[in-house]
Design a protein around this nucleic acid. Sequence first.
DNA 1: CTCCAATGGATCGAAGGCGCTCCATTGCTG
DNA 2: CAGCAATGGAGCGCCTTCGATCCATTGGAG
Lengths: 238, 238
Amino acid sequence: MSLPNDPLDPALAALFRPVRAGNALEETMERMLQAIRLGVVPPGGQLPPERELSSRLGVSRVTLREALRALQESGHVESRRGRYGGTFVRVPSSDPLPAPDRDAIEDTLTLRYALETGAAELAAARSLPPATRRHLRGCLADASAAGIDHYRRTDSRLHLAIAEATATPSLTAALADVRTRLNALLAAIPLIPANLTHSNAQHKTIIDAILDGDATAARAAMAEHLAGTAALLRGFLA
Amino acid sequence: MSLPNDPLDPALAALFRPVRAGNALEETMERMLQAIRLGVVPPGGQLPPERELSSRLGVSRVTLREALRALQESGHVESRRGRYGGTFVRVPSSDPLPAPDRDAIEDTLTLRYALETGAAELAAARSLPPATRRHLRGCLADASAAGIDHYRRTDSRLHLAIAEATATPSLTAALADVRTRLNALLAAIPLIPANLTHSNAQHKTIIDAILDGDATAARAAMAEHLAGTAALLRGFLA
DNA sequence: CTCCAATGGATCGAAGGCGCTCCATTGCTG
DNA sequence: CAGCAATGGAGCGCCTTCGATCCATTGGAG
């Protein structure tokens, strides 16, 4: 009649995980940093007005402003008052991220594999509207043209664009999360020009397959692309 | 220098989504209901002690107890005091779930496709420990033996077991979430014996492929299995 | 029979977060 | 040059949630 609660069924552990990601303030800061680090809001770019942001994040304006004030003091953003004022992203900001442990690395890489290969396949299987096709090509061009400074930001945007192409908000959100975790890992290893060239070629293969509507090829190309990054990370962080 | 915030970049929407799932109390209730509905804690089974649960859920005991009291009044659980007391799951409880809209259906089914096919492939690609192999066979047998009353619970457990077999906590958690959303959809359509037989055959194919270590076959079998459910749902809820 | 350990039950003060309202600044518009 | 609109800045009272502590109940252990 009673369960063996000692080793605790892994299914239970999955369901009885923490309900809230902790402090609302910290979580808000984390989100804003995500947007900056992923390059979704580029350096110099303007964040949405506080009233809109707080509403989107489901957080009071008071809390949002506390988060923004902290980011201001840490030099990530800058606020200007008055009409046509706003909050702006300041620097490319190379913040040191905490080094994750081995289990967390495998967890991140495995979840990433499932989500990104799935997204690539699904994007290829859909009939993409012209605007989406343009966006994909644009992100690909940006990533190819990016020097070492902007590479990871444009790379993140390209991968996010693929997720968006599936028109599945949950999938995009999940992938944005895992991407943030991945960037935390990538921050700990050097960016080698040879890898960059290699990645660009793979990106082109992936996007071509998606635009061609070849789901199998898109999945395979993505899998190969991810394997490269995964091997690199395991090598540096093992 | 400023962003086109009007239609709002979908990537921004993905990042600037709500920080907290709302009320801590409601979220806690939802989690407990998940555990009950997914059959992770079977009818008559005992929940972990309040102190442990509140700690796992990252919620104060006060809040957890409020949630439990609500579930008690709705007849889902029952509490007994004293040593060897505890909180126990009461009935199979057929609660009516709110009907989701069309976009939510596609969102759920698409995310599910990405996660479940990924999980099947990854589980097959791993070298599974004996205990995991046994667990998979056990869940398969339970689902096959289950009558119409217990089918969806055992089915949920089987799919969760596949996710657990990947040894990737994030993936298991994500899949548990999407499964809950799926069950909300399934609750709105009838369970047809013919589908049940068909599903059981597909389950066997999937598990066999996983135990054989045939990743490609596992993915394909899972994709076919999901297509059946998806078509059924689209048919009934379109 | 007594004690004890494990569980649920209850209360209180402190902190976090929210909704609301009003203020301050700025630059375009007429 | 005066007004206005859009933005950031700041304060107040309320509700939720938390952490800690103590109480109540129960059944086995000694």
